[in-house]
Design a protein around this nucleic acid. Structure first.
Lengths: 326, 326
DNA sequence: TGAATTGAGGACAGTTTCTGTCCTTGATTC
DNA sequence: GAATCAAGGACAGAAACTGTCCTCAATTCA
């Protein structure tokens, strides 16, 4: 009974669109008798969806929160919004980036072309202050799909200080190391070994036919942890801000850095970035005074200090040109 | 045939979880004959979902992008990720905030309690960026639901320079004006007139029983546009960089701003941000010298220039502390 | 308190649909 | 050319669905 299944889905859509529905109204919409509607509601219930009912004048049905999440039926606009939101979330929220990635892969494979175009168009317009992705979301989605679906990948890779090389790999895992850094862990077909690639060093990606996944090496997790942690060295600078932890916490976005209490009216902010200059950019975003305390491990402190001063000089010079022009 | 409907849904879930599936594999999973599976696939197709099939060794089924978006079947983790992503997107991406809001309302009403708790926990870790008043996502979701479902709202409102008052309204529309500014347009029951409320000035919200919506005033759109328009603006600053367009284009990420050729060896970079300080942060990230030319429409040029100089001062002061400490 | 509204659900009969079991055809890969 | 795998027609028995007709139960409002 195809019609019944389709009707159940339509009922679910309808119930998701507005909270409250009168029985008669629903029955009319679905073009069935109220009796059949009640049966449909029962069916949804026995599928695990929490449809609540109310008797009496002003009664009706509404879809509540059950134990399972019902299939989400999105309108075009909503689907685009979810896609855009997820793309930015993969980079912003470390805690959920993997899940966001897999949701994004799911959605991307279902999204009709016309909607994909809209997402791309929106994405191009979006500039987010300080928290912008360094790795294009499309690339990530493609790689994540390749991992999930066991599809060969082929790309140009520019290793540290080397020339671009073409690599052919069996993708295994996409690893996220916070602060906008993504790594592809894959089996390198030419070198016959497990390799880790920085996604931002990777270009001209194409994914090929499926491969049968080889058994995962036992030390995969360790391999990931090591190659991801060691690869690039980050700057982790500590700043002293004046203001109590409570007062500052609400005004500092979590992706900017980690905040700790120092004393009653000072706090310490630790900022991570890939370049000393990135540190400067982030601390400018904070918008108020600060004291540079140094880097977490002591290394690179001088560079960071120099970067801050150089940035100060550039800002002043750049702003002054305008003033003198008038 | 409840079993059939449930099975179709399961099939859809399965197909969303991985790209490629062999027919036999699917049949086994769903505990039906291959023949019935083929019929199920047919059923999905006639419901409008693009299931593709491939013959021969290595053949099988995969769910492609059809003309309609199929119901999205999310795992727990994915649902949490989508919710978190949407919450931040409502504030970040002006272009899709309404759609994101309605998707969020939909999702929030379906999300099982255990998942809601996880979202809340994650949300608590995420705080939004400096200065501007922040509107809690929960408040927005509640208000948006109230608009959609025609539920009375009651809250305390602190008008400009006034004391908090209790208001009882019929919510009509939630309007977004970029830069974390949200407005509730509602019919004020005590004043018997259309009113606009700034959501960040509103507290102790409770939503009551349903009301029958009165006909929308004809000038609603105009009313919204007017009461919302005041006060929001983005900064669009133009900078001159030395270097040819070709040389710079490859070194400036596209999200930083739009680059144009000016002359053989200078280019113009246009940077957008919501605060003058955001402009400063972005231009620092560029890492080389620049000249501030002003803002695109001329307005706010002074503020941007001042923000750059202020940032320079802060950077110098902050960096100097370290030097003097040694 | 009583009338009106609205959902719940049992029973029944006729119709429709579904499933599994054949079997043949057509596409694709090696 | 052989093997693999999806497509789909035919058929019969079983199962499910729908509308109709009724009786109950819950809730609201006068």
């Amino acid at each position: 009974m195809l019609e019944t299944s389709a009707r159940l889905l339509r009922l679910l859509t309808t119930l998701q669109g507005r909270r409250h529905w009168a029985g008669a109204e629903l029955a009319e919409r679905l073009e069935v008798t109220p009796r059949t509607l009640r049966r449909d509601v029962d069916r949804l219930r026995s599928l695990g969806y929490a449809v609540q009912a109310f008797s009496g004048p002003g009664g009706g049905y509404q879809l509540g929160t059950g134990s399972e999440l019902p299939p989400l039926l999105l309108s075009d606009d909503e689907a685009v919004a979810v896609s855009v939101a997820l793309r930015s979330a993969t980079d912003t929220f470390t805690g959920v980036s993997d899940a966001a990635m897999s949701a994004l892969v799911k959605l991307s494979q279902l999204l009709p072309k016309r909607l994909k175009r809209r997402v791309t168009a929106l994405q191009a317009m979006t500039v987010s202050v300080g928290g912008a992705p360094v790795v294009p979301a499309d690339l990530l989605v493609t790689l994540a799909s390749a991992c999930r679906d066991h599809e060969l990948a082929r790309f140009e890779y520019t290793a540290r200080g080397g020339a671009p090389q073409v690599r052919r790999v069996e993708p295994i895992r996409l690893a996220h190391a916070g602060a906008r850094r993504w790594y592809l862990v894959a089996w390198d077909l030419d070198r016959e070994a497990l390799r880790t690639f920085r996604v931002d060093k990777l270009s001209a990606l194409s994914v090929g036919p499926r491969f049968t996944p080889r058994p995962l090496p036992e030390d995969l997790e360790r391999h990931i942890a090591e190659s991801v942690a060691g690869g690039v060295h980050t700057y982790r600078a500590r700043f002293r801000l004046s203001g109590s932890f409570e007062a500052l916490a609400s005004r500092i976005p979590s992706w900017l850095g980690a905040l700790e209490r120092e004393s009653e009216d000072t706090s310490i902010l630790t900022v991570n970035a890939e370049t000393a200059n990135g540190i400067a950019s982030l601390i400018v975003l904070w918008g108020f005074g600060f004291e540079l305390l140094g880097t977490v491990d002591g290394a690179g402190t001088e560079e960071v200090a120099q970067a801050l001063e150089a940035a100060a000089t550039r800002l002043q010079a750049g702003a002054r040109t305008l003033a003198s022009a008038r």
